[in-house]
Simulated scan of single mutants.
Amino acid sequence: MSVVKLTTENFEQEVLKSDKPVLVDFYADWCGPCKMMGPVVEEIASEKSDVKVGKLNIDEEMEIAQKYGVMSIPTFIVFKDGNVSKKDMGAKPKSAVLSLFE
């Protein structure tokens, strides 16, 4: 599955109403560590069919980032059944990001 670009318009449908756990990567285009994590996020999206992966640009969707307390980027939040399940921030190895689903 490919990475879903998340916006104010589709966040509720794609994340909060998803029947699968959703990993949301909060990022910005100017953020170096975010760019480093891009390929990792893409890999997870293509390898794990039991989850959905989305990216949310905090500069374009500041309201959502503020609602979920995103203070630094990259921030990864896993949503399950419309609720925050786990949250972590900073550049990480793929295994650390995958552990958020456990």
Rank of each mutant, 00 (worst) to 15 (best):
D59S: 12
M1D: 11
D25Y: 08
P39V: 06
E14V: 05
V78E: 14
L16I: 02
D88N: 09
P93I: 00
D59G: 13
K5H: 11
V4R: 00
M1C: 06
M89G: 08
S85W: 14
G69A: 12
E60W: 01
T7C: 06
S2F: 02
D25A: 06
W30S: 05
E60H: 11
A65H: 07
W30H: 05
V78P: 14
T7V: 05
Q13V: 12
M71Q: 14
V40H: 06
I77C: 14
G32L: 09
G82V: 02
E60M: 11
V97R: 04
N83G: 11
A96H: 09
V97Q: 03
K17I: 00
E102A: 12
K35N: 13
V70R: 12
K48T: 06
M37N: 12
E43N: 14
Y27R: 08
V53T: 09
T75V: 10
E47G: 03
E47Y: 04
A91C: 02
V22D: 08
V97A: 04
M89D: 08
S46L: 06
G82Q: 04
K55L: 06
P33H: 12
K48W: 05
V78M: 14
S95P: 00
F76Y: 13
V41P: 00
M71P: 00
K94M: 08
Q66E: 13
E12T: 09
P21Y: 05
I44L: 02
E43T: 14
Q13M: 07
E61D: 04
V4Q: 02
K92E: 01
M36T: 13
V70P: 13
V84S: 10
K48S: 04
S2Y: 02
K92T: 01
I64N: 07
E43F: 04
V41H: 05
L6Y: 09
L6I: 11
P33W: 10
Q13L: 08
M37H: 12
T8D: 15
G90L: 01
V97M: 04
S85A: 13
M89V: 01
K55C: 05
V15R: 07
I58P: 10
P21W: 03
L6G: 09
A65N: 09
V70N: 13
Y68W: 13
V3L: 05
K67N: 10
S99A: 15
A28R: 03
A45H: 03
S85I: 00
E102G: 15
G54Y: 10
T8W: 00
D81T: 03
D29K: 12
V84D: 07
M71I: 10
L98I: 02
E42V: 15
S99G: 01
K35E: 12
G82D: 10
M89S: 15
V24I: 13
G38D: 11
K92N: 05
S18A: 15
K55W: 01
A45I: 10
V40T: 15
K67V: 04
D19K: 13
V3H: 00
D50E: 15
A96K: 14
A28F: 03
Q66N: 13
V53H: 00
P74K: 01
P93N: 01
